[in-house]
Design a protein around this nucleic acid. Sequence first.
DNA 1: CGCGGTCTTGAGTGTTGTCAATGCTGGTGG
DNA 2: CCACCAGCATTGACAACACTCAAGACCGCG
Lengths: 238, 238
Amino acid sequence: MVNPLLKKLANFTTLSDDERHAVDESCGVVRSLAPREDIIVQGQKPASVCLLLDGFACRYKALEDGRRQIVSFFVPGDLCDLRGFILGRMDHSIGALAASRLAIIAPDMVQSLTDRYPKLTRALWWSTLVEEAVLREWILNLGQRDALERMGSLFCELLYRFRAAGLLQGDCSFALPLTQLELGEALGLSAVHANRTLQALRRRHLVSFEAGRLTIHDLAALEQLALFDPDYLHLNSP
Amino acid sequence: MVNPLLKKLANFTTLSDDERHAVDESCGVVRSLAPREDIIVQGQKPASVCLLLDGFACRYKALEDGRRQIVSFFVPGDLCDLRGFILGRMDHSIGALAASRLAIIAPDMVQSLTDRYPKLTRALWWSTLVEEAVLREWILNLGQRDALERMGSLFCELLYRFRAAGLLQGDCSFALPLTQLELGEALGLSAVHANRTLQALRRRHLVSFEAGRLTIHDLAALEQLALFDPDYLHLNSP
DNA sequence: CGCGGTCTTGAGTGTTGTCAATGCTGGTGG
DNA sequence: CCACCAGCATTGACAACACTCAAGACCGCG
């Protein structure tokens, strides 16, 4: 199996065999997770960096009264919790949404990787900045778009990201193991309204979403409906 | 004048005179900005890093149809656009909200700073991660809190940040040069509803907001109302 | 077979947005 | 000095969007 992190970084730069090899080497133990299993929860101190090899996961934050917001999704190839690492305590949780596999990377491994390979450092820096850009887009999403546009935007984003990770099945379809409740938690919508919004998209023949699989039937139309512009994902940079 | 960046970094670590001096040195030309003047707009390529010395600024994203979302605020001491630097084109704009002054820092200056001072690197890394944590909190804000909680949370956040920057006047008051329209653009509310929400906070004697100045009369009550928890700002880390 | 979780639907409510009008203030030019 | 204007704050009436509650249907699983 090809390391999905390398696949992802290839969207930004071309790495030498040496560098690719070094990345592969740095992946230590692999941990398997059940669906809904937390990787780390708010308040804990992370001890290592994780690479999602397989499956689907998310960051989320909870309010004292139980309201929950999914703050970002992890696609295979994404790195988790470089964050709490410097910051100390985690200000959010990370959980698997589907059965997943994680490669555990020791902190000093990251250190030595970036010390030895400046190009890799830059590539990792790039992936951090893209993550940040995605957070900003989500803020735009939640602040300005209505439910239909919001869901459309999210679906477009995920399509581009799954494609960049080489995880599409066919042209416009990929595994998206989310309940409608979780979809709502990512979009700031109640489960009921997430359901109705989904139906509206279906009725327009833009997407189908069944059995944990999303298919986009008319990407151009969906992008137009959602006022979606993939620039913020910074794929295929020069 | 003390460099506000140093003031900010002091919340994370203690720097040596040598390091403090190096930071001061790296600040080049100072650029003055009028209120509402853009620093850099979506699509451009940034050529340098900026340090907000004075005033107030924000990142914002716009939709084609004119809807605008303020995505984050800059308080003096904050660094702008380390981002587009690696990413190439900016996926958002940065604009001054009040008359402001920026220190322009050449890219290779950052490079040499971080090469020579690992502790400084860590501190800058910290400030980037805090910025990211703030973005996540804003997502929680927009997704789960209602208008009243949202505005309360924002006011609490700004109070903590202005305090950390040493910019409070008295105990709980600071300059916040925003129109109600802009406040709404940050909170995902219409100007009208921002106005009504503000009135609700006033009616409860929690805050006053007049003449570009925010005063928080009962921080504890406001935090409780908004379910606000300052942990995510990672101030006073060990 | 029954159970729990998820999806779906309807009805009623509530929050927030839109539109439009008014008043206030500071600045500008006559 | 005053008339005028632009931008901002405020208000009311109404519409639209999204939430809650509640019930039923549809699974997959033990």
